[in-house]
């Protein structure tokens, strides 16, 4: 069985600055895969390489199709939802408009999608007319997730969802991600500083350092690894 998402020797750069030096990884359909690594390792850039928001080279295949020549809009149209670092909600628009944008690539009525999303995020339904910018940080992160989910993506790219959130909210967020994964079979590529949480949610993980994969394995293997334990789990 081939993976839903497969990266082979992917390089990426910002202008002259090379950031990724040959990343290879695979994400099986229906799984949650974590990407760990210190700040500046290139985790965000890896997700951006997939969604086409950074200049990249190398092979990126999604559901058997090459992505490496596609721009972000085209990648989104194939069913890849990217919740960027810092959420990327449209704070000037209403909650409803944000959700509508999430399903931008879908044709026809999005009512069923919305209903489905509201079962996971019931409070959003009452706030649909509210300006997204007036939501709290945690609510905005939930909205970002909800917006990604209206697309009914085959693959969700999730970048540091726990950043700046209170622990209760983080737990709630991860509960929803796990639920989406279990109930809907959503495939997730998760970037997360909190290795503990990440490895709990994921079946497998990759550790990035300075733009290279230095370690990979199942979550259990990673948890058992000494260097991971020391650097990321803190015991």
């Amino acid at each position: 069985m081939t993976a839903l998402l497969e990266l082979q020797d992917v390089e990426a750069r910002y202008g002259p600055v090379h950031v990724l030096h040959g990343i290879s990884l695979a994400v099986e359909e229906g799984s949650v895969v974590a990407v760990l690594g210190p700040n500046g390792a290139g985790k965000t850039t890896t997700l951006r390489a997939v969604s086409g928001t950074v200049r990249r080279a190398g092979r990126i295949r999604f559901a058997g199709r090459p992505l490496d020549r596609l721009g972000p809009a085209a990648v989104a149209r194939l069913g890849v939802a990217h919740v960027p670092e810092g959420r990327g909600t449209f704070s000037e628009l209403t909650v409803w408009e944000n959700l509508r944008l999430g399903a931008y690539t879908r044709r026809g009525s999005i009512q069923p999608e919305l209903e489905r999303v509201f079962t996971y995020f019931p409070w959003l339904s009452d706030r649909r007319r509210q300006q997204a910018g007036t939501l709290s940080g945690g609510e905005q992160q939930m909205l970002a997730l909800a917006r990604a989910f209206v697309l009914r993506p085959r693959l969700l790219l999730l970048d540091e969802p726990s950043l700046g959130l209170a622990p209760v909210l983080v737990a709630e967020l991860f509960r929803i991600v796990r639920e989406l994964n279990e109930k809907e079979g959503l495939t997730v590529l998760l970037v997360e500083q909190n290795a503990h949480l990440a490895l709990q949610a994921a079946v497998a993980g990759y550790v990035l350092e300075a733009g290279r994969v230095v370690l990979s394995g199942s979550s259990d293997e990673l948890r058992a690894d000494d260097s991971v334990r020391r650097s990321y789990l803190g015991y």
């Binding site: 969604s51 960027p84 449209f90 628009l93």
Partner: peptide, 24 residues
């Protein structure tokens, strides 16, 4: 309209709009 929403999103936040599939 959806087109109008896409245009607003593209003007407000081009990068994020592209991520949701708007042809900015």
């Amino acid at each position: 309209t959806k087109l109008g929403l896409g245009m607003r999103a593209a003007a407000l936040r081009p990068a994020e709009a592209a991520l949701v599939g708007v042809r900015v």
